[in-house]
């Protein structure tokens, strides 16, 4: 278009996709938060100059193919076992930057034990925990994080605490473990939120560089397909419904719980 011609020149470029993400087209549904979360992690890796030291441990879940997008060495873990695999790799290569990338079904259901024990051992790893309140990959089943009353394929009348128990705030539980050094909950649904979440990711990798123990970043995200909404509506619904249960902010900084 005519109004662009003077502006679109290489010297005027202010933002483009980082090279730490490959050019593969992501398989995620239109509007899914996973792509944004990948990007902030990749941008931090680029800015810290640690691309050749970063090792991604991909989960089972929608982000099972994360290694197609992160332009770093990667491994796929068995469902929920990413923190165990990350433990092994980080211990073998203590100066590398091993991070896991896991959904709520992976991390807080089948992988609860691995998550708890890796954090309790204070493994020097970064855990990126994507909480979308649902099993996205398998078609929208109830997760431990599913909200009370929320309808899913396996809670068609809404989550009922008498039948299904309560939504699990695993992030707050992990803050009680002495091994965790940095614990925060972020989101990526607005430009400001993305910038804040990116700062948290950077803090996590810096802690790892300084061998501080486990850094754990929950990102409350949308699964617009599983929630059966458009992406913009899902982001709004998330603010109104997910954030009251999963409040955004730091939970533990420099090994000390943040008083609320």
């Amino acid at each position: 278009m005519i109004f662009n011609q003077e502006i679109i020149k290489p010297e005027n470029l202010v933002y483009t996709k980082t090279k730490v993400l490959t050019d593969n087209v992501m398989h995620y549904c239109p509007g899914c938060g996973h792509g944004r979360i990948h990007r902030i992690v990749a941008e931090v890796i680029e800015e810290m100059g640690i691309q050749d030291k970063a090792i991604c441990i991909a989960p089972v879940g929608c982000s099972v193919l994360a290694y197609n997008y992160f332009n770093v060495d990667s491994l796929g873990a068995a469902h929920g076992r990413a923190p165990a695999l990350a433990t092994a790799i980080q211990r073998l290569y203590p100066d590398n930057h091993v991070f896991t990338y896991q959904g709520d079904g992976d991390l807080a259901a089948i992988g609860t034990a691995e998550t708890m024990h890796a954090c309790n051992r204070g493994e020097n790893i970064v855990i990126i925990f994507v909480n979308n309140g649902i099993y996205g990959m398998t078609g929208g089943q109830m997760a431990p994080t599913t909200l009370i009353g929320m309808k899913t394929a396996t809670s068609p009348y809404g989550r009922d605490i008498h039948l299904h128990g309560y939504p699990l705030r695993i992030t707050e539980l992990l803050a009680d473990l002495p091994g965790t050094y940095f614990i925060t909950r972020q989101s990526v649904h607005t430009p400001a939120a993305v910038r804040k979440a990116k700062k948290a990711v950077e803090m996590a990798f810096q802690n790892q560089k300084n061998k501080k123990g486990t850094s754990f970043i929950e990102i409350v995200s949308n699964c617009n397909s599983g929630w059966k909404m458009s992406a913009p509506d899902a982001n709004k619904w998330m603010e109104e419904n997910m954030f009251p249960k999963y409040p955004i902010g730091d939970i533990k900084v420099d090994g000390v719980k943040v008083s609320k």
Binding site: M1, F3, N4, E6, I7, I8, K9, N12, L13, V14, Y15, T16, K17, T18, L21, V25, M26, Y28, P30, G31, C32, G33, H34, G35, R36, R39, V188, H189, T190, P191, V194, R195, A231
Partner: peptide, 28 residues
């Protein structure tokens, strides 16, 4: 783009899940 009001804030590119937006900015 449907008009010339862009200020180059990069907000759109930062939230684009697929990283498909590049942003340019200059003094005109």
């Amino acid at each position: 783009m449907v008009n010339g009001d862009c200020i180059g804030c990069a907000g759109c590119a930062i939230v684009c899940p697929d990283g498909v937006i590049s942003v340019y900015k200059s003094k005109i």
